[in-house]
Amino acid sequence: MQKFTLLNGLVAPLDRANVDTDAIIPKQFLKSIQRAGFGPNAFDEWRYLDHGEPGMDNSKRPLNPDFVLNQLRYQGAQILLTRENFGCGSSREHAPWALEDYGFRVIIAPSFADIFFNNCFKNGMLPIRLDSAIVDELFKAVEANEGYKLTVDLERQVIAMPDGREIAFEVDAFRKHCLLNGFDDIGLTLQHVDDIKSFEEKHRAAQPWLYA
């Protein structure tokens, strides 16, 4: 997994609540058996004016000028600012894959759906929960200032604003440790093979029908 330590990135605002993973990456793209290449179809139904299908040359498709991420000023954004319950619905990890492939490494919102939140950490992405009032303030700042950037420092757990003010954020110690080091969860878990095996023995004795 790619590490996440410090990011100074352009912020793009997506001013909607309850953005679901069907919207982030529509179902027709889930037919892929690959892990990469979902970026051009992130937010496909909002982003393009035509209907997207796998295999299309996305560079030739008509863009929806009304979709915020299509605005010139937000090209190259690495931080997505959005509203409550981001990533709700389907558990599809294709959603964080698509966002990461698009270029986002950080998502800031007042709240996230549980499965999506969890999936981000498996892909070197950092979802950050901030108070609604702070998110409101950031939306205003992004809209008022073209080229608005934030610096996200995972080690110190702070977001630095252009005026130097800092916003602290919470992150689980274990997830932080994995992100900072780019650790693969499976590798870490397999360090505890003995624990798993001894648990399995006890479990088999208590509920033998699970092993029949």
Partner: peptide
Amino acid sequence: HGIGTSEVEHVMATQC
């Protein structure tokens, strides 16, 4: 509960 594909792989490999 539902899990993502990285977790699918994790459960396959570690049962956890």
